[in-house]
Write a protein that binds this DNA or RNA. Structure first.
Lengths: 214, 214, 214, 214
DNA sequence: CATGAATGAGGTTTCATTCAT
DNA sequence: TATGAATGAAACCTCATTCAT
């Protein structure tokens, strides 16, 4: 299966490569993730060809296969990149809220998170729909990245519990629900858009969540 | 556009057929919807071949194409059949709750709906992931079927408003949220299953919703 | 190859049938020839399906196969019917010219023949293009019908030779050339139409032929 | 309409390709035109499969589809190649007759042209019968190539008119008739062969034409 | 005599991946 | 390192013909 000269770079030991320059590998893979996203989101994974993907990446087909083991790997790179960006955004944002009182911090966190989701609507929906197309190994990796967002909200909630502002039986479930509500905005936008704005949706759900835990 | 000698049956004028027996058409299409569901859910739409689908339906390829215009149409039949079943289930169940007081009726309705979703997990998730693969004409048809469920909850909520039990600004949004929460159980089951049971999930969200509207 | 119950009607012993009523057979076959011509000419033989052909004939598929052995046979019926009509037309017309002096008779014959060809343009072109699609047995039958037209002109020319009006080395070649010139009008109409009318074309070639034989 | 990653080479912007090497494209397309001709002529276009065509070209199916967009395009390549060869032959030959007196030049031109047609009988007949199978865009391209031959004869006739050797009302019609007579030899060879040789046919028609214009 | 549902071989076309250059 | 021509398995779909009713 694996041909002569194939490696696995240390940073991402899931994906095959023929290159030995680790920096170059990471650079190229980020290029791939960023440049092919628009195409894949627009045309769908199955309807996009390697030719189109390579072209969208500004590469040749051969070059693509130097840094990636299969078409599936490209899909993974795109989805994981989107997820990572979201996770990093949340981690950075939430860290900046450390000095606000818990209730206010949670409100701002949700607002920021929902706002980010709104901007990435397409990618979020795309990830939901296409995750099934990568092998479970890669699926797990994506889910783990998603859990970093959940963990971020858990932290905020934990602090509120410590201060007595919140009263929560199961931190993880509540944190997950916040995340899920954000995803719902992206998943059902075709419906929600017709009935409310992002701000209304956000306000509504912040209240609902606070009612449940405050 | 329409191939030689093809018809459109009155009951489902979206799908091409070569048969002239309307009863048979409906029978065969239901067979297709029911018998190919398991295969499609398990293997995924793109990875299932027409040959496999036909075989799963107990038909030959030629026969399949007498009652359906394309592989895409099979996908539509499966998704729409699942949706229709769900809608019918809800309509019947909700009708049986007419004599209960609104709050109790809503509680029971949610419980029944979530329970049904739980049994159809795979199909619900499948529909979410594959709807993009049918032409927008068919997508719309599926969404309309889904809206029947939303309409069902709207009815329950409206009755509660009339009796003064509920106080709701926008019926549709609340109804849609109930439906969406049910779908979330199917969509994120891999996560939720690890942290709570269906009963806990149901109870939790019934309370959360009632807090918001009672 | 031939299934139980297959016959060959006496009038056209080339085509298989399941019917025993010879009159009905001939009637149906003429129906087929006449009613499917327009479809075949318009869509082409290969791109027309048996379903369409049957429908154009006002028959069901099964009925069609009662009076014809294959799709190829339908093609034969159409082409042969067209050819026969042309031949009969010529034979009748030429017979009516028996009392005119040879030169005048030939002129009128050519004029009538070219006029008939012009009206049947599509069928003549069609026959040229599709004859190759029937087995040689049927091809021969069609050519023989065509030769009846040639024979008709031969007769006119022979009379002229007998009276001394014409001087011809090889009757058949000249007769065939007249026929061929008529076919050319149908075959190259896309070009000729742009440069001359049927009358001009006819006059021109009548003169040219007379110059050669008078 | 145009598939993923497909190009149109500058030389023949009607046919799709996936290759980027223009020289190679032209080379392969000529290979296709030349090597598949025999097969197509023998078996007919509809009865030849892509597999057979590719094999006759010494290519794999995939390779064929790198240089051609469809089976139809192969047909076009074959017919257009034959036509082009004929046109080039005529142009070259006619240019070599510039110093002969018009009458003699025309005689030699006709003789050469008929001779060439005779050698390409099968391809000429094939082109007549199958042109209908390519889209009108390609049909036009073929007809234009054919008109180059007509133009060649027009030139010869025009020179004769200038010197006073010929007296012609409509150059194009006469030129076209010469061409058509050549094609007739190919189209009706099954009949003509039985009654005269190519030389006889040629002599006969040269006289007939000269009678009309000298 | 008439019907049309059923068959299934075989058609064209696509595209992920390799590897010689 | 980079290229893109070449591969060929496998996909979807059509439709002439049969035969039970």
């Amino acid at each position: 299966m694996v041909r002569a000269g194939a490696h696995f770079s240390p940073k991402n030991p899931i994906l095959r490569t023929y290159s030995k320059d680790h920096q170059l590998i990471d650079l190229r893979r980020e290029q791939i993730a960023m440049r092919s996203a628009r195409l894949l989101v627009k045309k769908g994974y199955d309807r996009s060809t390697i030719r189109e993907i390579a072209s969208a990446c500004g590469m040749t087909m051969g070059m693509l296969y130097h840094y990636v083991g299969s078409k599936e790997d490209v899909l993974y790179l795109v989805m994981n990149h989107a997820m990572s960006q979201l996770a990093e955004f949340c981690e950075k944002t939430f860290a900046g809220l450390a000095n606000h009182p818990p209730i206010q911090a949670l409100q701002m966190a949700i607002k920021e998170y929902f706002g980010k989701i709104d901007k990435q609507q397409d990618l979020v929906l795309f990830t939901y729909q296409e995750t099934k197309n990568v092998r479970s190994e890669l699926q797990r990796s994506i889910l783990e990245t998603n859990m970093r967002v959940v963990a971020g909200f858990e932290g905020l909630l934990a602090r509120g519990c410590a201060t007595g502002d919140f009263k929560i039986r199961n931190l993880t479930i509540v944190a997950h629900e916040v995340v899920a509500l954000g995803q719902l905005w992206a998943l059902n936008r075709w419906f929600l858009r017709k009935h409310c704005t992002l701000d209304e949706y956000t306000t509504e759900h912040i209240q609902s969540i606070l009612r449940g835990i405050a």
